[in-house]
Simulated scan of single mutants.
Amino acid sequence: MSPTPDERDRIRAAMERILGGTPERSNGALTIVALSIEAGVPRNALTQRHTDLKNEFYDKVRARGGTPDSEQRLHKQVRRLKELRAADAEEIAQLKADVEALAGALQQATMENSHLRQQLADRHAVIRALPTQAPLGR
């Protein structure tokens, strides 16, 4: 799709309306999507053909002391992902500790089983049964 001759003018006018707080077609968000809707142009017009206007829009948003909505969403997502990563690292550390404890218990049980098998093989050894525990809840 080729650009219309007045495309840049429509984008600049839309920029002024959004930054002035008087959008006519969009929700007025400080995003490229809202700007493209406001200007009546496809989004790729700003991301591919008129990147200078896209950058100008974001520069004006920053100059006003604001952060574009898309950037705010990304910062929020980065914070959430960092929190998830920290939680995952904590869980991994706990799982590693559990694996070590279970490996130790398995080794202990294997050694005890081996020892009991040796005693069983030796007919002269005295093996006595240990009392069993009653199941919990009785």
Score class of each variant (00 low, 15 high):
I127S: 08
P23W: 05
A105V: 05
L106N: 00
A45S: 13
A109Y: 04
R25I: 02
Q48M: 14
P23K: 02
S36G: 12
D59W: 09
P3R: 07
L95D: 02
A34G: 02
R80Y: 05
L35N: 01
Q108E: 10
A121D: 13
N27R: 11
K82D: 13
L102M: 10
N27D: 14
R85D: 06
H115N: 07
K96L: 15
R123E: 10
A101I: 11
A34T: 07
T47L: 00
G66T: 15
R79T: 08
G104E: 12
V61E: 01
D122M: 08
L46A: 05
N27I: 08
R62H: 09
Q108Y: 12
I18Q: 01
Q133N: 14
P42R: 12
N55I: 14
S36A: 14
A63H: 00
L95A: 09
L46N: 09
P23V: 13
E16F: 13
Q48W: 10
R25H: 03
G66R: 15
K82W: 10
E24W: 09
E100S: 11
K82Y: 13
T110S: 02
R73T: 10
A134S: 14
T47I: 05
L35C: 05
Q119D: 05
V126W: 08
P5S: 11
L19I: 07
V126H: 06
I18G: 00
Q118N: 04
M1D: 06
R43P: 08
V61I: 09
Q108I: 00
A39W: 00
V41W: 04
T51G: 06
L19D: 01
R12H: 02
V61L: 08
K54G: 09
K96N: 13
P3W: 01
Q119C: 10
L74F: 11
A89P: 14
S36Q: 02
K96V: 11
A34C: 10
G65R: 08
A39D: 04
